[in-house]
Design a protein around this nucleic acid. Structure first.
Lengths: 345, 345
DNA sequence: CTGTTAGCGCGTTCAC
DNA sequence: GTGAACGCGCTAACAG
């Protein structure tokens, strides 16, 4: 391998020597504070720019000024991460906001919540991050009180009502449920099924409740609520089961795209006409929805913008904003492709 | 918002006071080096464990001991990241290796190579990372000499022959090409098309060359080489074009799954029987391949293991291994699903 | 005003 | 086992 080069990464001391001033003066100049004349300041800035000086993140962190780093732990089995378009888009949205402000993102993938919390503790103790995002919000989430106790600045990604008083960004699932149910009503559907995710997730409950309310208002009955593990096969199984039941719905809403695809296939495998005999709607949109035939209609969110909103809020929190208001920022809109049709008669 | 709690993160000084020794002694004890008696050492360790001490990453980095952080820059438009199962799996693989060794991963998403390099410079100057992964290796990659000049420890993810002498982990695409072509030959195919990615990528060239060699050896002709941008529509267009040409192939290999899906749809849209009239093979496997009907046969790599190998190598480089041997670690194997069949006659 | 000096933060290491 | 110096940037106190 190549010989190790002397690192020679420029420091304030070097700049001071080159500019013929003290290190203190350089610091003042570089941070735009008074204490140096304009001419000297300019000379210092020129030298700094020339040698490509960048402040040492370590020294700044040590000084107590924070690390300009925020953290995200993704708790998933590594294998299933490939199918999850959510996180990559979410991360991209975070990046858009933080990189402009000089922040970096520390990422960790852990298999279980135990190690997730361990990671938070270590990150905070080692002063590796100034704050974190918490995703996959669960009912009575055990992580929240612990994070609060650790004192780690945080933004919860999920419904504010379940965030234990911590600052949160959520998506307005009630609005999405309304949009979906209104469209169903418009198309004449009266019996709809909701194939949801695991019960423990907050958004599962929020969506179920919102659908029930919207249904009651519009005279559309939610004839079934099924919890799944988001898998393709679970979607197919739920669909089959509902179709075989005596009280089959004429439309189905799926909490993610994969279950919707599974159901679509199961129904078509029986020779059913979609959307002629059954309407199918996926709650989370993804590129996958455009690949099926017919293409899946979906409640589409801008996940990247969602991440950006979360990032903006976390930076506020990290920078000591005393009053950060939780919001439901992300709004899904109904994207009609080819799986929504009038009620069969 | 909650009142800010006093951070009270434990330091060596505190432990020293509690254990009734000097800070230096604590450091020795904590790092398992001589200089303290066994009894004192144990006492110190007990106290440290009790207060939950974790070394300050900042202080260690400042001291010159490295940051225990490695970096990955993903250069992609944020919008397309959702469809790329590669990076998320790759990252998961990296994590598996580095988190056990106390390393963290710094992630950045940038839209262009310009800012990618800028990120490397800043990371290195600010001492934010000890080393980086470089992906998306291109022919005559302009980034490599610059990274080398910066002095940033690196592992190139891509074919070692094109890594400019830098340590690299690649996948053995020649072996994969052989496997594919042998299978085609076995099935009686004599005329195969290769629908590849953008020309600038190293793996595009490597695959094309490997296919040509394997074809020559086995008496299978590669009748067409098409470069695409990996999009669904490009795959469909390439397929249509080839089918309409006077010299249509009986089998097609696609450099990624999306183009393969596009082609599959285009061919079936014409009423063709797959694999009866045309065999389709995707080079990179992904969950998507299992969702089509028929399910796509693919050259499948363990991307997560690929990331793990890259991480192991980077840690070696970072820890000053003088001689790191580049390898082609990842081997794709042919997974037959439903799109490979005997040559039509 | 313009600039300098000294000391802090935290873990490591060398001389004693 | 201890004390002190070091790495790097920031800032309070001080001097010209």
């Amino acid at each position: 391998m190549a010989v190790r080069k002397p690192p020679e990464r420029p420091t304030i001391a070097q700049i001071a020597k080159q500019a013929g001033v003290s290190a203190g003066a350089v610091s003042y100049a570089l941070n735009g504070r008074p204490g140096v004349s304009d001419t000297t300041r300019q000379r210092i800035l020129d030298v700094a720019h020339e040698v490509g000086w960048v402040p040492s993140a370590a020294a700044r962190a040590l000084r107590g000024g924070g690390t300009a780093t925020v953290g995200l732990v993704i708790t998933r089995e590594p294998d299933v991460l490939g199918i999850e378009p959510f996180f990559m888009s979410f991360v991209a949205g975070i990046e858009k906001v933080i990189s402009d402000r000089g922040y970096a993102l520390l990422l960790q993938v852990t298999p279980d919540p135990e190690r997730e919390l361990q990671t938070y503790r270590e990150w905070w103790s080692a002063r590796r991050v100034d704050g974190i995002f918490v995703t996959d919000l669960a009912i009575d989430d055990q992580r929240l009180p612990i994070i609060d106790e650790i004192g780690l600045p945080v933004v919860v990604v999920g419904d504010p009502d379940y965030a234990d008083g911590l600052p949160a960004v959520g998506s307005d699932d009630a609005a999405a449920a309304n949009a979906a149910m209104e469209r169903f009503a418009e198309l004449g559907h009266r019996r709809v099924a909701h194939i949801a995710g695991p019960e423990r997730f907050v958004h599962t409950r929020v969506r179920s409740e919102a659908m029930a309310r919207a249904g009651a208002r519009l005279g559309v009955e939610v004839v079934a609520e099924v919890n799944t593990d988001y898998s393709l096969t679970a979607g197919a199984a739920a669909c089959e089961h509902l179709l075989d039941s005596g009280n089959a719905p004429t439309a189905m809403v799926f909490d993610n795209d994969l279950t919707a695809v599974g159901a679509l296939r199961a129904a078509m495998g029986r020779g059913m006409d979609i959307p002629g005999e059954l309407s199918v709607l996926a709650w989370d949109d993804s590129p996958l929805c455009e690949l099926t035939v017919p293409a899946l209609s979906a409640l589409s969110r801008d996940v990247s913008a969602y991440g950006a909103d979360a990032a903006r809020m976390l930076l506020e929190v990290v920078n000591g904003a005393s009053e950060v208001e939780s919001v439901r920022s992300s709004v899904a809109r109904l994207v009609e492709r080819g799986t929504l049709g009038p009620v069969p008669r």
